[in-house]
Simulated assay, not measured.
Amino acid sequence: MNEKNHELKKIVIIGAGGQGKDVLWTIMDINKISSRFDIIGFLDDDKKLHGKTINRVPVLGGMNWLSNKNKMGCIIAVGDGKIREKIVKKLKNVNVYFPSIIHPSVIMSDFVTIGKGTIIHAGVMIPPDSEIGNFVFINLRSQIGHDCKIKDFVSIMAGVNVTGETIIENGAYLGSGVTVVDKIKIGEWSIIGIGSAIGKDVKPYSLYLGNPGIFIRKIKDEKSRPRL
């Protein structure tokens, strides 16, 4: 797409599943406002997808496709922060960079900071003085309150409401429709299930469910981590 326009940033989307389609949609909407990205294709380690076309964009191969490329932009379209972290580590010695992708409909204060490799989808609202880290994923119609700190590899699914001065530590996962009251801390790599309402601090490496959200169990290792 648009390969003759050298001003466009060449990018690939890592992950050709549902999240990949959503990221493609967001990038296409960005390009409708102002052409910024040349979408080269999808990358996915599922060999069954190689050679296929998804919404007019080819699946080029697995991540090994990047090994001989020069300064390629990569968007990691995966909802699970643990997998995003693994992909970033795998690409540590590859000549790539990670732009952040923000849908044009996002309402965001000028006093919000955003790290690299972050994806913010349509309808999200972020008021002043919140900090969004690296490789954060914020899905459709979620709201982040003022003065929040959303740290690296956090995943916030669709329709989540995080109120002011909340701290969400590295890798935490908030399922669709979760509500979080103000001034609490969500521990690192914790998981909060769909529709839960959180009114107290969440322990790290823990699973919480329900309204009100309650501690269910510890997440000790990859085997005990719920499938996201």
Rank of each mutant, 00 (worst) to 15 (best):
G15I: 07
F37W: 11
T26L: 02
V59F: 03
P58N: 14
G62H: 08
K52Y: 05
K69R: 15
D22P: 01
K32N: 11
Q19P: 01
L49A: 07
H50M: 00
R36D: 04
K52P: 02
L43R: 09
W65I: 11
F37Y: 15
V12G: 07
G41L: 05
V23W: 03
K32T: 15
I40F: 09
F37R: 07
I33H: 06
N55H: 13
I39T: 03
G41C: 07
N55F: 05
G15K: 05
K48A: 11
W65E: 09
L66F: 08
I54F: 11
L24D: 01
I30P: 00
N68C: 04
F37N: 04
K47M: 06
D44F: 12
S34V: 10
M63I: 14
L43C: 08
D44H: 11
L66Y: 08
G17H: 13
I40C: 04
D46T: 08
D38R: 11
Q19F: 13
I27M: 05
K21C: 09
D46Q: 06
L60T: 08
S67H: 05
R36M: 10
I30F: 09
K48T: 15
T26E: 02
I33W: 00
K32L: 11
D38P: 01
I33A: 09
D45Y: 14
N55M: 13
F42P: 04
I27Q: 01
I33N: 05
M63A: 00
K32R: 12
K71R: 14
P58F: 12
G18A: 01
D29T: 12
V57M: 06
I75G: 02
M63W: 12
I13P: 00
G61T: 12
N68P: 01
L60Y: 12
K71H: 15
